[in-house]
Amino acid sequence: MNKQIFTAKDHTFTICAYGESKYIEECIQSVTSQSLQTNVIMCTSTPSEFLEGLAKKYGISYFVNEERKFNSDIATDWNFAVSCANTRLVTIAHQDDLYKKDFAKKVVEHFNGTKRPLIAYTDYAELRNGIEVSDIKNLNIKRIMLFPLRPRFMWPSRFMRRRMLSFGSAICCPSVTYVPENLPRQLFIPGYKGGIDWQAWERFSRRKGEFVFVNDILMVHRIHDDSETTALINGNTRTREDFEMFCKFWPKPIAHIIEHFYKKSEDSNNL
């Protein structure tokens, strides 16, 4: 199989917008001021003059998901966001998060030379009360989990990626770039909320291809009281879904033990 070559025109940031986030303009600025200028679009299921105005201000295409009113699920939004991009590589940019200037450049560079890439994902930091932090327990544990996947020769290993996923979801969803041509037609399956990304990684991990790890902190995930992650944890939705995911890798008794310790790490998502 020939090695793949990608350029700036092959990549799209698709900003998944919802409501009127006070942080979204910072996100837009971070993806439109990349050192490697790629494509940027905005997708939403909650159209408004606010969002349309921002799209016009920054000269980016604006797409409205008309089907969301009939199927209220985040999976629908994310699938729609990917479908609106006409490029081989797609990053779903979460509206509250920030992307460092070399994100697109380094992701595209790491895709080059692969044979059948599935996804790429990067290391990341968190933004807490306006302060960027990276050297914290939760993130360091995830880096340990991802350590075996640093070498390029490990990227095609289904065994290694599934072992990594069997202990939790160390892959940061907003840092992921997808290669739709090598993935299932329906990337995200409705039903999950907090575990929708982990569910996708598990499905993708079974396929032939490469999980491309960019071992650089290239995006910043914002933690705040109104975030979906915080709300799910406080409502125990995440705990239930995490257990279901562990059961995909382990017998139930072992899954219970792992989930007990995994839940403690989630506390760091609360401010």
Results as ranks from 00 to 15, higher is better:
residue 25 E to P: 06
residue 52 E to A: 11
residue 15 I to P: 02
residue 58 Y to S: 02
residue 29 Q to I: 14
residue 32 T to I: 15
residue 37 Q to N: 13
residue 61 S to D: 13
residue 60 I to N: 01
residue 48 S to K: 05
residue 19 G to W: 00
residue 53 G to W: 00
residue 21 S to I: 02
residue 40 V to W: 09
residue 56 K to H: 10
residue 59 G to L: 04
residue 64 V to M: 05
residue 40 V to D: 13
residue 60 I to P: 06
residue 50 F to E: 06
residue 56 K to R: 12
residue 24 I to L: 10
residue 52 E to C: 11
residue 41 I to L: 15
residue 52 E to Y: 07
residue 35 S to E: 15
residue 14 T to I: 04
residue 42 M to K: 11
residue 19 G to K: 00
residue 19 G to V: 02
residue 35 S to W: 07
residue 35 S to N: 15
residue 31 V to K: 07
residue 16 C to G: 04
residue 15 I to K: 00
residue 55 A to R: 02
residue 45 S to V: 09
residue 22 K to F: 02
residue 63 F to S: 02
residue 49 E to K: 08
residue 30 S to I: 06
residue 57 K to F: 02
residue 23 Y to V: 06
residue 31 V to Y: 12
residue 62 Y to Q: 05
residue 37 Q to Y: 03
residue 62 Y to I: 00
residue 31 V to W: 10
residue 42 M to Y: 09
residue 35 S to D: 15
residue 31 V to D: 12
residue 32 T to V: 15
residue 17 A to P: 03
residue 16 C to F: 00
residue 28 I to E: 06
residue 34 Q to D: 14
residue 62 Y to D: 02
residue 53 G to S: 06
residue 48 S to M: 08
residue 20 E to G: 00
residue 16 C to Q: 03
residue 47 P to T: 04
residue 26 E to A: 14
residue 19 G to A: 04
residue 34 Q to E: 11
residue 17 A to V: 03
residue 59 G to F: 02
residue 39 N to G: 11
residue 21 S to E: 08
residue 39 N to F: 07
